[in-house]
Amino acid sequence: MPYDIGTILFHDQIAIKSIDALPFSEQGDSGALILEQTTGMAIGLLFAGTSTISFANHIADVLDSFGLEIDRELQRRLQHIAPDRGSETRSAERTADDHSGESSIDW
């Protein structure tokens, strides 16, 4: 969806690149919870993406901004299902997870 507002600069975000031919995210995926593949720990909330790179807010920042916590039982269940790669699982690598990078997206 084209936007005419220019370039937006985001600080301290997670940049995710697919490690296979499929994009990590697709149109309509915004708001999806991103899980770390091996542990099932919630790490981010998807907010933007292209065919080559996706961006997520750090989950701790999202939760802190709303004064929320992830329910321990939910986190346990997420950890339990993470190794089971369903049809909607995408393989990716985190490319900017050190809280010091900047990312820009042209809208």
Rank of each mutant, 00 (worst) to 15 (best):
T38W: 06
G86N: 12
A42W: 00
D84K: 06
L46W: 11
S30V: 03
S87H: 10
M1D: 09
L74M: 06
S51R: 11
I8C: 13
Q75W: 12
Q75P: 08
Q37F: 04
P83C: 07
E36W: 00
I70Q: 05
I43A: 00
T52C: 04
E73A: 12
L46Y: 06
F66W: 01
I43R: 00
T95S: 08
H99L: 10
S91K: 07
L78F: 15
A92Y: 01
D29G: 14
S18C: 09
T38G: 09
L63N: 08
S103M: 11
A92G: 08
Q37L: 07
V62P: 11
A15V: 13
S51M: 13
A82I: 00
T7E: 12
D64K: 12
E88H: 09
E73Y: 13
T89Y: 00
R90L: 02
A96N: 03
Q13A: 06
R85A: 04
E69P: 10
A32C: 11
D64P: 07
D64A: 15
A42D: 07
S104W: 11
E36F: 00
D4Q: 15
L22R: 10
E36V: 03
R85M: 10
G101W: 04
I105P: 13
L63G: 09
S104G: 09
T89D: 03
F47M: 01
D64G: 15
P23D: 03
A92I: 05
R77C: 11
F24I: 03
A56I: 00
I81E: 07
V62Y: 06
D12A: 01
L46R: 06
I8A: 08
L63K: 05
R76E: 09
S100Q: 15
S54N: 10
L35W: 00
F10N: 02
A96D: 04
H80Q: 05
F47P: 02
A15D: 03
D97E: 09
T39F: 00
L68V: 01
D106E: 13
L33A: 08
R90N: 03
S54R: 05
L46F: 06
Q37T: 10
D29P: 15
S103P: 14
I16K: 05
A42I: 02
D29V: 08
H11R: 11
E93F: 01
I105Y: 15
D106T: 12
T38R: 12
R77P: 07
S91D: 08
